[in-house]
Design a protein around this nucleic acid. Structure first.
Length: 815
RNA sequence: GCCCCCGUGGCGGAAUUGGCAUACGCGUAGCGUUCAGAACGCUAUCCCGCAAGGGUCAGAGGUUCGAAUCCUCUCGGGGGCACCA
């Protein structure tokens, strides 16, 4: 191979760093463009080729914008705190604090190799004290403003990671990280009040430019439903059962009620329950079930009637039975339902099993045969004065008639952020028993709890020899007396630090705010510099994986909106809703290997290092981008990388060729068209077709070499293959880096050809094409068309019934 | 079960305000270069047909002068949510 990529790539890596080619002036930049890519978490031996795919895709856009005159800021860092890194350390029997240094070196080396235009001076790692001091500070701001609280609740407990998890981290009843079984445990934990932001998180989705699938996922996760709360009296009792329903129009069809087994009303009315033992047994049984078992869809419905307890349907005063059953969730709505078996499949199934009556109250508007259980809307029947009314109206009217309250429910739950693990930012709270006794504390609802004074931040994570999760419901930090023993900031008596650490997703919920302020003069005094924030935010383009649809991307929006409302953050003018951090987000596709997702456990992880060594970073970059549209992802098959290697070899050879005398006109037009196409392709993240355009362009250039066009070619190539483009640019005698050059402009006048190929169709079928003047009109085109030998033969003596003429494109003769 | 995405040559894919199906690349074959191979260059490469021509975008139907593209249904693949009242 004559193209010495190893030497070239090494040379330019050093040059770029030394000359700060990718370091914008953060204070003075005139046209800031914040090009952000989700930072990696160093959980494995290193980055795999799928990570590279994502980073390169983001970098191409950044390089493109830099050449278009923007001051592009493309930072990089490591999401190194958290369970993923800790689990990896456990696996290889290392201490996470030491392992972090090893991973850091390894990751940064790999990221250097791939040739991205990173602003290396601003890198950050979430496990550094200078960073997590501010993670803790953010927690305190949320606490002080009522957005962080402690509550005892049945929470998700991962038996593998031995810690609690947020709702978003439970995937089909399994742990997001270790796929361990998740069970419910009643524990007191720290939560962030993301539910308070359910509405803006939902509403703003309409106004931000994000991949549609991500928006849909977030919308569904927030899960807004509108309905009503209706109260049912319990006979011979002062208590009422409050239910939430989206179908108050079916109230006359209620034949029984169901409480979640955890419902606190059960205790209050236990004296009325005649089969208390049976009820208690059922409750105990459901407690032992994991989430996955309990929500197993195919599971047969189970439940127990509360004998002796009857409720009254407020619509018709009918007496109805009350059950407890695990198909009703304590965490949604009021934890109780009114059951309408005629119009709800779950209720129907339950009613069938327990032989309960089914009363139809809605008849479908479209007559359809054999619907067992109609769950749609329709016209009311068996509903007394509401008969004949349509569902929509009946919802309003019936709710009113029983003094129901219109309400809105969300699927979204508050974000559980405490973790009983070691490798994370300690939650900066202090618990004082003395203050608790006297009811003192910063929040009346949480006596004894005090925020760590801000001057004492960071609460440093100590080195704990045995950092393994204990499984006791307590973090390993609870074994370190020196850590948790502290004086109460209010009364000065002996108190105890919180020993749980915060969820990694809190670290990554604000990292992008820190990047441009990492080296600010006030970096130790404030989390971000407000002038820099105004200048660089919101982020111009955010790129990352779709797997974070309801995790990171929801949390990060919540934190930004909350900080914004607390006046701690101000992005200034933006077209996006105020406080939205990422007006534009694009998710990249997944790079798979032989049809399967790359993962350590499957053993199909492709390491990029070998390819870089063998073909060069430029070749790997281009191959990855060529194999499929960036937003789609694709299958990694290394055979095809040869095609790119050949292409780069031809680029290298071309630099020595002398200009051709002929073909000037063709060259001009092709160059102009190529500029247009590639510019548009990059804007739409269609890097694969941009590369095919470069290939076509070089085919022409080989035939008609031309220095001027070769320079255009190199500029168009630069975002994709930054090393070879830089080298050949220098060889042409240029002193300035090609990456700081201007992106080529095309002249629309030159693209407009005075001739085009007119397509001639007969009955919509392609028959012929002929080169004609661009100005040609319908009449003239028709005459030319029928005068063609081929067309004449096909038409013979048949008459044209109709002529369809599309200027600049085709003529269709209908016979 | 619900929601979203996808289905085009041997392969990755191109073609979207509906207008030449298969761009670009991989692979394969033939020829050239070579002692030979690798590499490289040229040519061919959706199917039937000697050709003229006909067929083809998972399958069926529809809208249209015209459909890979829009609509309906069916089949297949992938992803998300999942007893959310």
């Amino acid at each position: 191979m004559s193209y010495p990529f190893q030497k070239i790539e090494k040379k330019w890596r050093a040059y770029w760093e030394k000359n700060k080619v990718y370091e914008p002036d953060l204070k003075k930049a005139k046209k800031p463009f914040y090009n952000l890519m989700m930072f990696p978490y160093p959980s494995a031996e290193g980055l795999h080729v799928g990570n590279m795919y994502a980073f390169v895709g983001s970098d191409i856009y950044g390089r493109f914008q830099r050449m278009r005159g923007y001051d592009v800021f493309e930072p990089i860092g490591l999401d190194g705190f958290g369970i993923h890194s800790e689990n990896y350390a456990l696996k290889i029997k290392a201490h996470p604090m030491e392992q972090a240094k090893v991973s850091e070196k390894r990751f940064y080396e790999q990221l250097q190799m791939i040739g991205n235009g990173f602003a290396w001076n601003e890198r950050l790692e979430t496990y550094n004290q200078g960073y997590y001091k501010w993670t803790q500070w953010i927690f305190l701001q949320l606490f002080k403003n009522g957005l962080a609280y402690r509550k005892k609740q049945a929470v998700n407990w991962c038996s593998g990671c031995k810690t609690v998890l947020a709702d978003e981290q439970v995937i089909s009843g399994e742990c997001e990280r270790c796929s361990g079984k998740v069970i419910k445990k009643e524990l007191e934990q720290w939560f962030l009040k993301i539910t308070e932001y359910a509405e803006p998180l939902l509403q703003n989705l309409e106004k931000i430019d994000w991949s549609e699938r991500i928006k849909i996922a977030q919308k569904e996760w927030i899960g807004k439903s509108e309905g009503a709360e209706i109260e049912f009296k319990i006979q011979n009792s002062e208590f009422k059962i409050k239910v939430f329903t989206t179908r108050p129009d079916t109230l006359f069809g209620v034949t029984y009620m169901v409480l979640a087994p955890e419902h606190d009303l059960i205790l209050k009315i236990k004296s009325q329950i005649s089969n208390l033992k049976e009820v208690k047994d059922y409750i105990d049984k459901t407690k032992g079930e994991s989430d996955a078992e309990r929500t197993e869809i195919n599971k047969e419905k189970t439940g127990v009637e509360l004998k002796g307890v009857k409720a009254i349907n407020p619509a018709n005063q009918k007496e109805i039975s009350v059950f407890i059953a695990d198909y009703v969730l304590s965490t949604y709505g009021t934890g109780a339902i009114m059951a309408v078996p005629a119009h709800d499949e779950r209720d129907f199934e339950f009613a069938e099993k327990f032989k309960l009556s089914v009363i139809e109250v809605i008849s479908p508007l479209i007559i359809s045969d054999k619907i067992k259980c109609w769950t749609g809307e329709g016209k009311l029947t068996n509903s007394s004065q509401f008969n004949g009314m349509i569902s929509e109206k009946a919802k309003e009217e019936i709710t009113k008639s029983v003094n129901g309250k219109k309400t809105i429910q969300y699927h979204l739950r508050d974000w559980l952020i405490s973790r009983q693990r070691y490798w994370g930012a300690p939650i900066p709270m202090i618990y004082c028993e003395t203050c608790a006794q006297s009811g003192k504390g910063e929040k009346p609802a949480m006596p004894g709890w005090h925020a760590t004074p801000e001057k004492d931040l960071p609460v440093v994570l100590p080195y704990v020899e045995d950092f393994r999760p204990k499984g006791t419901g307590e973090s390993p930090l609870a074994t370190d007396k020196k850590f948790y023993e502290v004086k109460c900031p209010q009364c000065g008596k002996n108190a105890r630090r919180e020993t749980d650490v915060s969820d990694t997703f809190l670290d990554s919920a604000w990292y992008y705010l820190r990047y441009p302020s990492v080296n600010s003069a006030t970096a130790d005094l404030e989390p971000w510099n407000h002038e820099i924030i105004k200048k660089w935010f919101p982020v111009n383009l955010y790129t990352g994986g779709a797997e974070h649809s309801v995790l990171h991307l929801l949390y990060v929006r919540f934190v930004a909106l909350a900080l914004h409302d607390l006046k701690l953050l101000d992005f200034g003018q933006s077209a996006a809703p105020r406080g939205e951090p990422f007006p534009k987000f694009r998710s990249h596709g997944l790079l798979i290997k032989e049809g399967a997702k790359m993962s350590k456990s499957k053993g199909n992880v492709v390491n990029p290092d070998g390819y870089i060594a063998k073909f060069g970073a430029d070749a790997l970059r281009m191959y990855l981008m060529f194999l499929a549209p960036f937003e789609q992802g694709g299958d990694f098959r290394d055979r095809a990388i040869m095609g790119i290697a050949r292409f780069l070899e031809r680029v290298w050879e071309l630099s020595d060729k002398k200009d051709a005398k002929n073909g000037r006109e063709t060259k001009e037009i092709i160059a102009q068209k190529t500029i247009k196409k590639i510019t548009e392709d990059i804007e739409r993240f269609k890097y694969n077709t941009a590369i095919s355009e470069l290939m076509k362009f070089i085919n022409t250039l080989e035939e008609y070499p031309d220095k001027n066009n070769f320079e255009i070619f190199l500029k168009l190539l630069a975002p994709f293959a930054p090393f070879i483009a830089e080298e050949l640019w220098g060889k042409l005698g240029h002193k300035k880096s090609i990456h700081l050059e201007n992106w080529p402009q095309y002249d629309p006048r030159l693209i407009k050809e005075d001739k085009f190929d007119l397509v001639i169709q007969i009955n919509g079928k392609f028959r012929d094409k002929i080169s004609v003047s661009g100005e040609i009109g319908e009449k003239e085109a028709g005459e030319i068309a029928v005068s063609q030998e081929k067309i004449k033969n096909l038409l013979k003596d048949k008459k044209a019934l109709k002529i369809i003429f599309v200027p600049g494109k085709l003529i269709n003769i209908v016979i």
